[in-house]
Amino acid sequence: MTSRSVPQWPDAAPAPPPAGRCWTVFDLAARGTTARDWHRRLTVAGLDAELVTVPEPQLTGWIEALPPAFGELASRRHVGWRVAAVGPEHAVLALRACAVEAGLMDAELHLHADRRTHRRVYCPHCGATTLAAGDRFRCAGCARTLLVHDHVSLSSGRYLGSVDTPDAAPGAAR
């Protein structure tokens, strides 16, 4: 059974509500024209909206640089600012984590994952985060073989990993 902490995304992306004062719409290598459609819809509604596009090849590096960058962006905004993002789940959850860290609440976020190709996974043994494609992967920090659990920390946007073999001693699963 899937944990309740794992987001369930609808097949079709719902449009953002015409709320708030200004928006930043993030197109995180999204499929189709969803982000552009959202941006256009908000602009037509008379809201000040900017569109930030991150191409697929740049996505991993963009996520790594996101915490300070998003904090800096938020510091130049005021209450009334809304954020929308669409793209693969790992990128959307990473952005959500940064947004919440900056002080935004769910009512100010409009997020949609259009696919789940990879997961950012936290290793409780070494603290590293690895971008994992499957259910089992090698930790980028300690090289242990980890199993991805159906549990997501929405505050960090990461799934939980643990050593694949339950009886393995620390360090044995290298």
């Binding site: 938020a74 510091s75 905004r77 005021h78 209450v79 600012w81 002080g103 935004l104």
Partner: peptide, 9 residues
Amino acid sequence: AVERQPVGT
């Protein structure tokens, strides 16, 4: 005041 409050207020 409400026009210039930092994000998270």
